[in-house]
C-alpha cells in the first residue's frame, strides 16, 4: 500500500493520492484502482481513509442530517422545502392531530429521513420544529462541523455566552433565536469569525472573548 500524500498536504483535483482504493474517503474518486482528488483542499486521515477538506463544497444531503429549510410550496400531499441548495426537500403533510400548522415562508428545523434519486425526504414527526422568529444566516456547509465543535463544544459556548438558541442545519442555514437582536447579531458575527478562522488555534477562547465583549460589555470600543 502506497500513499502519495501526508496529513495536511494541500492537494488539487486530479492528483494521485494512493494506490490502494480502500483508502478512498471524502471528496476523492477511484479510477483504475487508484485514488485521486476530486477537489482542492487539505488532506485529513480518518480511520485509515484519505479525506479532503475543501474550503467550499456544495451540500449533499445524507440520512439523519439536521437541516434548516424554508417552506416554498404546499401541495395536496406534501410541502416543498427549500434547503438553500439544488435539492428540494419533501415534507409529508403533518396530519390533523399535529399541533404545528405550516404556511409558505415558514422556517423549519428537522432531520433528513432519506435522500436518494427520488429526492430528499424530511421527518415530519416529533423531530420537526417550526421556527417562528429569529435570525437566519447562511454559511458554507463545510464549516458546519467547526460551528458545532467537538461533541457540541462550540455550540455550547455560543449558546451559554449569549443565551440564544441555535438551530444549525448541515445544509448551511442557521437560525439564531435570542432575547434581543443585539444578542442574535453578536452570535452571527461570532459564527462569521469561526468560518474565517476555523484553521487557527485557540478559536474557542477567541469566540468566548468576542461574545463577552459584544454582549456583556455592551457597545464597546469601535471594534468589528
Amino acid at each position: 500500500m502506497t500513499d502519495y500524500v501526508r496529513e495536511r498536504d494541500v492537494v488539487t483535483p486530479g492528483q494521485l493520492l494512493s494506490d490502494d482504493q480502500r483508502t478512498a474517503g471524502a471528496h476523492t474518486y477511484v479510477y483504475g484502482g487508484k485514488v485521486y482528488a476530486a477537489v482542492a483542499g487539505i488532506i485529513q486521515y480518518r480511520d485509515s481513509r484519505i479525506n479532503i477538506l475543501p474550503s467550499k463544497s456544495p451540500y449533499k444531503p445524507s440520512e439523519s442530517d439536521f437541516v434548516v429549510g424554508i417552506i416554498t410550496d404546499s401541495k395536496p400531499s406534501h410541502y416543498e422545502v427549500d434547503l438553500g441548495w439544488h435539492l428540494v426537500g419533501f415534507l409529508h403533510n403533518l396530519g390533523r392531530r399535529s399541533r404545528i400548522r405550516l404556511q409558505i415562508g415558514d422556517v423549519v428545523y428537522t432531520q433528513v429521513k432519506n435522500s436518494g434519486i427520488r429526492g430528499v425526504f424530511l421527518e415530519g414527526g416529533q423531530k420537526l420544529v417550526k421556527i417562528s422568529r429569529g435570525l437566519l444566516i447562511r454559511v458554507s456547509p463545510v464549516k458546519i462541523p467547526r460551528i458545532i465543535g467537538k461533541k457540541g463544544s462550540m455550540l455550547n459556548v455560543l449558546n451559554s455566552e449569549s443565551g440564544c438558541r441555535l438551530y444549525v442545519g448541515r445544509n448551511g442555514l442557521i437560525a439564531i433565536v435570542g432575547e434581543s437582536p443585539e444578542k442574535e447579531l453578536a452570535v452571527a458575527s461570532a459564527i462569521k469569525m469561526i468560518e474565517e478562522e476555523s484553521h487557527l488555534p485557540g478559536l474557542t477562547e477567541r469566540v468566548t472573548h468576542h461574545l463577552r465583549k459584544k454582549i456583556v460589555g455592551g457597545e464597546i470600543l469601535g471594534e468589528g
Binding site: 488539487t12 482542492a40 487539505i42 477538506l53 467547526r146 467537538k150 484553521h199 487557527l200 488555534p201
Partner: peptide, 19 residues
C-alpha cells in the same frame, strides 16, 4: 498556474482544527 492559484487559498493554514 491553475494548481498554484487553488493552493493559494490554503496557504498559511498550518493547523487544521479537529471536529
Amino acid at each position: 498556474l491553475q494548481r498554484k492559484a487553488l493552493s493559494k487559498k490554503f496557504s498559511g493554514l498550518t493547523q487544521i482544527g479537529e471536529d
